[in-house]
């Protein structure tokens, strides 16, 4: 069995969100970069667990990015995985990124392709579906559980007000969310091993993006909190009813 986990580099969850160049670029000054949490905690860790239970599993990682993504890939390799690919492109939109990954997947003969449910910067929630659509593979989104049995993937996915269990033959694309695995911390052995694991840089194929960001905008600042004394709860209810008109 051959698994590919798609990972993305994102700003840390506590990073200050600001923009430069007349609000057209994200201000990266002082920003800590991390593996997108959905890719790391859920997709990657679950893939590592599968490899631990079935040691003949081949586990590859892939990202689309320029050289500054390498530390993130090494960090992911420190958690687990046999080798990684970096497609050397500063991706402009999800379609362009998905198209690159789809080519790698078509050549690599993967059974299971895992992504996080979304990245915490663009919140697109579209990469897995785009890859599946481009390569005509089945797609299961927002999965909370994933098991392998009888050469099939048994996947639990979120539905409105509940969950359902699906069965699907390989190859399949699955987007992972909370529930699928628990976060892990890389150990020293993993960090040392990650240094020598193969990281192959792949040149991108030509594909124009379909969308482009023209500008960013910050929401208007809050006017400030209006404090009400704890023994004046009726006043709070009055304000919610008559001033804010939300009750």
């Amino acid at each position: 069995m051959k698994i590919l986990v798609c990972i993305s580099k994102t700003p840390d969850t506590t990073a200050k969100i600001a923009f430069t160049d007349n609000n057209t670029k994200f201000d990266t000054a002082g920003v800590q970069w991390i593996i997108n949490p959905y890719d790391e905690w859920y997709a990657l860790v679950r893939a590592i667990e599968i490899k631990e239970s079935k040691p003949d599993t081949v586990l590859h990682l892939a990202t689309v990015g320029v050289a500054d993504a390498d530390p993130i890939i090494r960090k992911a390799l420190a958690l687990g995985g046999d080798e990684a690919f970096r497609i050397n492109l500063d991706g402009a939109d999800s379609f362009q990124v998905a198209f690159q990954l789809a080519q790698l997947i078509a050549k690599g003969g993967y059974d299971l392709i895992l992504t996080g449910k979304e990245t915490i910067d663009f919140n697109g929630s579209s990469l897995g579906g785009l890859i599946a659509g481009i390569n005509d593979l089945p797609y299961i989104s927002l999965a909370t559980k994933l098991d392998i049995a009888d050469a099939k993937a048994i996947v639990t996915r979120e539905i409105e007000g509940g969950e359902e269990v699906c069965e699907v033959n390989f190859p399949v694309v699955v987007s992972a969310q909370k529930g699928m695995a628990e976060a892990r911390i890389p150990n020293m052995r993993g960090i040392m091993a990650a240094r020598t694991k193969p990281l192959t840089v792949v040149e991108p194929v030509t594909q124009e993006p379909l969308t482009s960001v023209t500008a960013f905008e910050l929401p208007p600042a809050k006017a400030g909190v209006k404090l009400i004394a704890p023994d004046q709860v009726e006043e709070l209810v009055r304000l919610l009813n008559q001033e804010a008109k939300v009750l």
């Binding site: 379609f95 579209s126 579906g129 599946a132 659509g133 989104s141 927002l142 979120e158 379909l210």
Partner: peptide, 24 residues
């Protein structure tokens, strides 16, 4: 709608039609 169904179907349609998708 950017709901569970929308998140599943919209990117597949985007890929099939090569149509730019803006979610959220």
């Amino acid at each position: 709608s950017h709901s569970l169904a929308g998140k599943a179907i919209a990117p597949l349609l985007s890929a099939k039609c090569k149509a730019g998708l803006v979610t959220g």
